[in-house]
Write a protein that binds this DNA or RNA. Structure first.
Lengths: 120, 120
DNA sequence: CCAAACCATGGACCGTGGTCTATTGTTTTG
DNA sequence: CAAAACAATAGACCACGGTCCATGGTTTGG
């Protein structure tokens, strides 16, 4: 499919898709036509973009995603791919713990605020 | 305490502390001295900075933190503070779910990679 | 056929978060 | 006292992630 359709289906702008491609998160092939230089995206790319998109929302950097996508699709060395995936998973779990700490802090604050409300 | 000591204790650079102060995450008072315009930071500010620091690591934006810190310390209206805290907590929990989705995806990928490794 | 819609490329631009530098003034310390 | 360390301020600079714009070419629909 062409970038417009991909943009439509993924919910990402053309610019963003091109940015991701330039950064090695996805790849495309030249279209069949001899007369243009349009890019052709496979259905797989749509799935990849959906993953990338949710990962970006989760705060994972493009650089990190590049590493992951390369590990999945370009790596000729599965054990290296494994290393990357395990490392990123560990990182993400740490991140969850950090966020949970912040939530715990907020919960405590909430208790105090509600006490203040009760003291009206 | 002066900014150097605060920097030392918080592990944040002077520049970063000033940036946070400019953005309303912390506040300070003028020093006692008549001859300088140094800022004076209370011990509470150190605690606040420790929270801010870990929250920043967890990916919470300065703008969001400003809202939270204002809700804690500046709000004359506890019920509004409560709203902000609840909203941010909800947001953070959604974020955790997103990260967990990414981890789940990575786990699946890991299984496949390990199958590939097993097929050696 | 021709206008509208699409595509690629490159560069400018923006907000965010932070660092670095220069300048000037103050305090501390040997 | 003098040098070193510290402080405040302003502005430049940086990376990141993304959007917007201009240009020029291609395809599509009426």
């Amino acid at each position: 499919m062409k970038i417009g359709e991909l943009s439509e289906k993924s919910g990402l702008s053309r610019d963003t898709i091109r940015l991701y491609e330039k950064n090695g998160l996805i790849s495309s092939s030249a279209s069949q036509s001899e007369t243009n230089n349009y890019r052709d995206y496979s259905d797989d790319v749509l799935l990849q973009l959906q993953f990338v998109s949710s990962a970006r929302e989760a705060g994972i950097s493009i650089a990190d995603l590049r590493e992951l996508m390369e590990a999945f699709f370009d790596s000729c060395d599965p054990s290296q791919a494994e290393n990357v995936i395990v490392a990123k998973t560990t990182e993400l779990k740490e991140r969850i713990v950090q966020i949970e700490n912040v939530i715990a802090f907020l919960d405590e604050a909430l208790v105090k605020v509600r006490e203040a409300l009760g003291d009206d």
